[in-house]
Simulated assay, not measured.
Amino acid sequence: MNIVEKEALEFYKYDFLNSSENLEGLKSALDSKLYSFNRDRDRLDFLKIIRDTCSVELENHKKDCNGCDYDRQRNKAIFVVEQEIESINKYYSFEPKKEEEFTTEEESKLHSKLNKILNDLEKQNFGQQIIFEEIEELKNHFNLGKKTWFQLAKGKLIELTVDKVIDKVVCIEIFDTLSDGFEHVNKILIK
């Protein structure tokens, strides 16, 4: 458990819900605590932990509740936290860690691989526009970093397979082609 997680759980347990029963008090307590974090990524992680913890507590309580006021305050807390998450997400831009960033050479190789895949699919009569749009879209997201980009690629390919636009074998071949030369990329497992 990292510092942000510890702080979030401690804040939730001892300070947040005890700060007030109205929106203004909850927001004030949350704003005061968020001021302690300089990085938006830490703020978002903190808020998501608070929201998830509150949601789990609320669901567990509903199983045994006969109509008390417990859920009203938890719903207010979730509302305040989600507003803050939306506010940060408006201006937050993801920046991958240095070791996760693609080099110019890696971007160029992937771009070439994507073009080759498109040509091969066209030759194999996989001419549906959706395939080309999904693969073309991958070219615009190298800024996500290696891990996130490959997760996006995997998701798009699996979605095309589930929608029966391409078959499993083609999906796996495309991902293997893209991930060739990149360490620590998990292969696609489709049953």
Rank of each mutant, 00 (worst) to 15 (best):
L44Q: 12
S36K: 08
R72K: 13
I49N: 12
I50R: 05
S32G: 15
D40N: 15
L47G: 12
S32A: 09
L44H: 10
S28F: 11
L34W: 06
C54I: 14
R43W: 05
D52K: 06
K33Y: 06
F79N: 15
A77G: 12
R43T: 03
S36W: 02
K48C: 08
D69T: 05
D64T: 07
R43G: 07
F46M: 08
L30P: 14
K63T: 03
R74F: 07
N60E: 15
L58P: 00
A77M: 07
D42F: 03
F46V: 05
V56D: 14
K48Y: 11
G67Y: 10
R51F: 09
I49V: 15
H61M: 03
A29Y: 04
D31A: 04
D71Q: 07
K76Y: 14
V56S: 11
D64M: 02
R41E: 15
I49Q: 12
R41V: 10
F79W: 12
L44Y: 09
N75V: 00
F79D: 15
I49D: 14
K76V: 01
R43H: 05
R51T: 01
L30Y: 11
D52C: 01
K27Q: 15
Y35S: 10
C68K: 03
E57K: 02
K27H: 09
Q73T: 09
